[in-house]
Design a protein around this nucleic acid. Structure first.
Length: 420
DNA sequence: TCTGGGGTCCTAGGACCC
DNA sequence: TCTGGGGTCCTAGGACCC
């Protein structure tokens, strides 16, 4: 038996923590570069604003309804997420952090599941200040679905146990839910399923599994089994190491010069290297990509990527930056207005099982000490206190975040003040 | 004018080998 | 004119998630 604990409108709830005046008011949080609305308060959802709509397209609506917008403040959300997960971890023996705002819980052996659900909701609400909903089901997929119901139907006060329903009631719920409400059914699958007359979660649950496996995929077949209550997915209590690291950003302005493109690529490579060392991994290959704005069809389009293998796997920023620059040189073409660049590290392995440099045995040690110093200083004194000259100083291309809230919980200078 | 970022997993197809 | 079969490995791309 599983429960899924999911924070309501998480980013918006985080912003409201420090702006209680915004409770009950329409609020959105925007993606990087103030591009799209990626989190919407209940009031905004009720206005019919879809997830991921470009901010500039909802300007008129925003003005009419006095919608308050924030640039995303990931430092804040990550910190609040950590607090939510800590409270949860103290309440149950086995949990799996699934995303920044959701956690699965193993409920085996728990007698009063709903009671525990209410306790979780109450405690996170009181101790952290974030509203959550709890969905309970015999499989992860059913727990997800139950959570969906808990969110939509306020009469359950945030906790819904699908398995506490009679089987007729369960079927009724599944008939009322769209197939695309099921975890793992996205836009494409929804469309294809519809051509076979599969519209609701109930239809999907009763589809022929072996036919689905042949016509679609093993993945969808598993989803159906999960819907039927046969658990295919286990709780992943251990955090497994990442297999790739990606850093990419849209550019704040269009860039045509190679020098500016290089600055952004170097910055991404430096950031990716930092993540790599934090994970305790080394990379065997570096990929760099650049692209123009695909939405501007009147412009000449160009996207390109290049893999650069490393002779010896590394976690040294200088090495990774050098590889990224080499990659960029092979794909850069003048005459285009570039809008996005990125760096990807893949083929990662743990740093502690690496071979040393045969010809300069001391090199690794010196390298490690230098990188450690770099990371320690930047962690202590703020990101980019020490940075590579190639990242540039002016950074005209840097993304826009005009509407960002202060780092209330992670920067002393931004601590909220209480007066009066 | 303005359209996110970072992941995972699966599959199809090509290259290569015997 | 007719041109095998089966296996592995790798990569690119697509679909999904939040």
């Amino acid at each position: 038996m599983f429960a899924l604990v999911d924070c309501n409108n998480f980013y918006v709830s985080c912003e409201r923590l420090f702006r209680p005046d915004l409770k009950g008011k329409p609020v959105v949080v925007l993606s990087n570069n103030d591009g799209c609305a990626v989190a919407r308060s209940q009031e905004v959802k009720q206005l019919g604003v879809p997830m991921g709509i470009p901010w500039f397209q909802m300007q008129a609506l925003a003005q009419r309804h006095h919608i308050v917008a924030f640039s995303s403040n990931y430092a804040l959300y990550a910190d609040i997420s950590g607090r939510v997960m800590r409270v949860l971890r103290d309440m149950v023996p086995h949990s799996e952090v699934y995303s920044i705002d959701e956690s699965f819980i193993d409920l085996s052996g728990i007698e009063d599941r709903q009671e525990l659900g209410y306790q979780i909701r109450q405690r996170i609400g009181q101790w952290v200040g974030i509203p959550v909903c709890v969905g309970i089901g015999s499989t992860k997929t059913r727990a997800k679905l139950a959570n969906h119901i808990a969110k939509k139907h306020t009469e359950f006060e945030g906790v819904f146990d699908l398995e506490a329903q009679t089987s007729t009631q369960q079927s009724d719920w599944l008939k009322r839910l769209d197939a695309s409400d099921v975890w793992g059914i996205g836009r494409q699958l929804k469309q294809q399923l519809e051509t076979f007359n599969i519209h609701t979660a109930y239809d999907l649950q009763h589809a022929d599994v072996s036919w689905i496996k042949k016509r679609f995929s093993i993945h969808l077949a598993r989803t159906i089994e999960e819907l039927r209550g046969h658990a295919c997915l286990k709780l992943q209590a251990m955090v497994t190491a990442r297999q790739q690291i990606m850093v990419s950003r849209s550019l704040g302005v269009y860039v045509t010069q190679e020098e500016e493109l290089r600055q952004s690529v170097i910055s991404h490579a430096a950031r990716a290297s930092e993540k790599l060392r934090k994970d305790g991994s080394v990379t065997h290959a570096v990929m760099v990509f650049i692209q123009t704005n695909p939405y501007r069809q009147q412009d000449d389009q160009y996207t390109a990527s290049q893999w650069v293998p490393l002779v010896t796997p590394s976690q040294d920023s200088r090495c990774i930056i050098a590889a990224a620059i080499r990659g960029l040189q092979t794909i850069y073409r003048p005459g285009y207005r570039y809008k996005k660049t990125g760096v990807m590290l893949s083929d990662l392995s743990p740093a502690d099982v690496q071979q040393g440099d045969l010809f300069d045995p001391g090199a690794d040690d010196r390298r490690q000490r230098l990188m450690l110093t770099l990371d320690t200083l930047n962690h202590k004194l703020g990101r980019d206190t020490l940075f590579f000259a190639g990242q540039g100083v002016r950074q005209r291309w840097h993304m826009r975040r005009d509407l960002k809230s202060p780092a209330y919980t992670t920067d002393f200078n931004d601590l909220p003040r209480v007066s009066g």
